[in-house]
Amino acid sequence: MSFPHQAIFWDIDGTLADSEPVHERSFHQAIDGLGLDLPDDLHDRILGMSEERCHAYLVQKCGLELGLAEWTARRHALYMAMLDDVHAFPKAMEIWDGLAAQGVRQMAVSNSDRRLLMANLVRLGLDLPGTLLVSRNDVRQGKPEPEPYLRGAWLLDVDPAQCAVVEDSPTGVQAGQAAGMTVYAAPDMAPGLRETLGLPCASRLLELLPA
C-alpha cells in the first residue's frame, strides 16, 4: 500500500512548536499599561488568528488605539525577546522526522509573520537550505481562508485533494478543510477539542507509511 498523501502541510505555533505560551505572554506584555478591557479567555478567542485579525479584535472589542504597524512591532519585539522559551513538541517532531525519513514532502504553513515563522523554524532545526514555506506575508488572506494551504500545494505542484494538514486550532482546521485537504489533529491538541472536531491524530500518518 502506498502512502495516501502527496504532501503534508504543518501549522507551526502549537503544532510543531510549543510557542503558544510565548505568544500569550507577548500579547499580555504588549497590552500591559494600555488600559484595555480584556476578556478572561482572550488567548482562546484569538488562537490561530493572523496578526491583523488579532489587532482588529483588540480594536473592535477591547479599545486598542494603536495602529496595526505599531502594534505588530511592539508585540513581535516582545516575542523575539522570549524566543529561547520556544521548544519543539517531541511527539510532533517524531512524526515529522519519521515522514521525512521516508521521503514524504512536508512544508510549514503558518498564519504568523515570516520573521516569526523563520525564527521558530530555527528553534526547531528546520531552517534547511531550499526549504519552502508559506507565511502570512505570502498570501492575501490568512487562515481560516484556504489560501495558505492552496498556495503550499501550488508551490509543491501537488493536488490539494491528495494532501494532508496537521493543525491545533479550529481556525487552522477550517482552512485545511476549505482547501479540500485531509486534516489531522496535532498530537498535543487538547483531546476534547480533537474529539469535538472529529479529527484523527497525526500519529496515524506514521501508521500509513508503507511497511
Rank of each mutant, 00 (worst) to 15 (best):
L206K: 08
A101P: 01
L83N: 07
E94T: 13
T72M: 14
A56H: 14
A81S: 15
R204N: 03
D168Y: 02
V139I: 09
C62S: 05
Q6K: 14
P210I: 10
G192L: 07
A119P: 04
C201R: 12
R151V: 14
V134P: 06
M189N: 06
L205S: 08
G98H: 00
S50V: 14
L117H: 13
P4V: 01
V173M: 07
P21T: 03
L156R: 12
V158A: 06
V134S: 11
V59K: 12
D40N: 14
D11Y: 00
E20I: 01
A179Y: 00
L156D: 11
Q106L: 02
I95C: 03
K143C: 01
D127L: 12
P210W: 10
G63W: 07
Q177D: 09
V165T: 02
I31N: 07
I8P: 02
I8Q: 04
G142D: 02
L155P: 05
L83W: 01
A92V: 11
I12V: 15
A164P: 04
T171M: 07
A119R: 05
R114Y: 04
V122F: 09
S26R: 11
P129E: 05
E70I: 00
L58H: 05
H23N: 12
N120K: 14
L99G: 03
E145W: 06
D32E: 15
Y57F: 15
D159S: 10
I46C: 07
K61V: 11
H43E: 12
G35A: 06
P191N: 01
